[in-house]
């Protein structure tokens, strides 16, 4: 029986190998963890800006659609939780959100400079989150739900120092158009969820009513067979739905590891 199984496996590899080699592609997986400082403003909950620490975890996958293709595909998932205090210290807010994005970018290799690669394109992203204020009664929390079309760029530069190659990366993304959930100016969640009274709860977003920016600066350091990533992540989320004011600004230091894989798939 074992002999038959071994024979079938050998035959399968023999048949599949040419296809796998033909279809192989390079994929970069990065997982990073961060700690930073955040500031929240949501006038549905409070007119004051709350500030405090934030913890983040991010997973990124970057790959060419085909080997030597100029089209790069990137997915990223970012989760974060934060705890913030009011300026006087007697109010608290807890928040959290998860963001998922898929980007398709055109790649220019060695453009203008040896080792400088630039990717630029579009991205769709969605996020869901919440912010809870510990002091409030009938307006204790705000729910966040949004979907955006985003322009995204990624620049990488291979820096050779002695025998090591460090990769510097900068990737900004700016939402251009999108939609988000928001209660109306003075609407209670009791009306929305208990009575089913929806009133302009889906709001249109564009940079004119709230500029948003995600930017990440990082360096990949090869250490023996592993690659360490150190970075800075800056998030600026702003919106003015239904005459409410919202912003979420964070600065975080990120650290994690990168795995460069060659995936062979028929």
């Amino acid at each position: 029986m074992k002999r038959y199984l071994r024979y079938i496996a050998c035959m399968w590899f023999a048949c599949a190998l040419p296809i796998m080699v033909k279809a192989q592609r390079d994929t970069q997986h990065a997982t990073t963890f961060g700690i930073g400082k955040t500031s929240h403003l949501d006038t549905y909950l409070s007119p004051l800006e709350y500030q405090g620490p934030e913890l983040l975890v991010m997973s990124e996958k970057l790959r060419c659609l085909k080997r030597n293709s100029h089209i790069t595909y990137q997915t990223s998932t970012l989760g974060r939780i934060s705890s913030a205090d009011s300026p006087t210290g007697n109010g608290g807010e807890f928040g959290g959100d998860i963001q998922y994005a898929s980007a398709w970018m055109y790649t220019w290799r060695d453009c203008g400079l040896q080792g400088l690669h630039i990717h630029a394109g579009g991205q769709i992203q969605g996020s869901i989150g919440f912010l809870y204020n510990t002091r409030n009664g009938n307006n204790p929390a705000q729910a966040y739900l949004s979907a955006d079309l985003t322009i995204k760029a990624l620049a990488t530069y291979d820096l050779h120092i002695r025998k090591q190659t460090l990769t510097l990366r900068y990737q900004p993304s700016v939402p251009l158009i999108g939609a988000m959930f928001s209660p109306n100016y003075g609407q209670s969640y009791y009306e929305i969820f208990s009575l089913g009274d929806y009133d302009h709860n889906v709001c249109f977003k564009y940079p004119g009513n709230g500029f948003c920016l995600d930017q990440q600066l990082s360096v990949d350091l090869p250490i023996r067979h592993a690659t360490l990533r150190l970075g800075y992540l800056n998030t600026i989320r702003q919106a003015t739905p239904n005459q409410l004011k919202q912003h979420h600004i964070s600065h975080a230091f990120m650290i994690g590891y990168v795995r460069n894989l060659t995936i062979k798939r028929p």
Binding site: S46, L48, N133, N136, N138, G186
Partner: peptide, 19 residues
């Protein structure tokens, strides 16, 4: 009026009828 909460710059909390 269903009351909402807010606060002042000095940290004092307020409550008022909203709906």
């Amino acid at each position: 009026g269903m009351p909402f909460s807010s606060e002042l710059p000095n940290g004092w909390a307020i409550r008022f009828s909203a709906c």
